[in-house]
C-alpha cells in the first residue's frame, strides 16, 4: 500500500505517495530528478549515494523513502549557495579531488560531515572518515588534500 510522505530536499518541500519499498536513492533520482546522488553498488559499500539526512551522512541506498518522511535532506545539488561553490566543492576543484567524478557527490557529502564534526582533521582522520566511500580513479591522495583545503578555508586559515 502506498504511503504519503513529505520531505524537504535542499530547502524545497516535496510531498507525494510512494511504495514503502522505494529506496530513498531512487526517490531522489527517479521521483525528484535529483540525479547528482549516484548509485555505485546498491549494497551499502561504496558511498556514492551518501546524502545528509537531518545533518547525518547516510547511504541513501540503505534506507526507504518512507523512513525519511518529515526529514530534511541535503544532496550534492544543495551544497552551493547563490552560485558559489561550497568550500568542500571548491577543495575538490582546486586539488583535483576527482577524475571520472562518479564517487564525487558521495565523497563531498561525507567529507562535509567529517569537517563539521572535526574542523581540523588530520590526514588519518580524513581517511578514517572516508572509509565508507570508494574511489576507483584517484588513489584518494587528492581527495584527502581537497578535504584539508576545505577545512583550512572554513576555519579561515
Amino acid at each position: 500500500m502506498k504511503q504519503a510522505i513529505s520531505i524537504n530536499v535542499n530547502g524545497a518541500d516535496h510531498a507525494g505517495e510512494v511504495e514503502p519499498r522505494l529506496l530513498l536513492v531512487h526517490y531522489l533520482r527517479d521521483v525528484l530528478g535529483l540525479t547528482g546522488t549516484h548509485i555505485g553498488c546498491e549494497t551499502s559499500i561504496c558511498g556514492a549515494c551518501t546524502i545528509l539526512l537531518d545533518g547525518q551522512a547516510v547511504k541513501s541506498c540503505t534506507m526507504f523513502a518512507v523512513q525519511a518522511d518529515g526529514s530534511n535532506i541535503t544532496t550534492i545539488e544543495g551544497l552551493a549557495t547563490n552560485g558559489n561553490l561550497h568550500p568542500m566543492q571548491e577543495g575538490f576543484w582546486e586539488c583535483h579531488g576527482l577524475q571520472c567524478g562518479y564517487c564525487t557527490p558521495g565523497m563531498i557529502i561525507a567529507a562535509t560531515q567529517i569537517v563539521d564534526r572535526n574542523p581540523n582533521p588530520s590526514r588519518d582522520e580524513i581517511r578514517h572518515g572516508l572509509e565508507g566511500n570508494l574511489c576507483r580513479c584517484t588513489g584518494y591522495q587528492h581527495i584527502v588534500e581537497a578535504v584539508e583545503y576545505a577545512a583550512a578555508k572554513k576555519s579561515g586559515v
Partner: peptide
C-alpha cells in the same frame, strides 16, 4: 564498526 555512514544509522 563499518564506516561513518553505517555508524550514523
Amino acid at each position: 564498526i563499518g564506516d561513518m555512514q553505517v555508524r550514523n544509522k
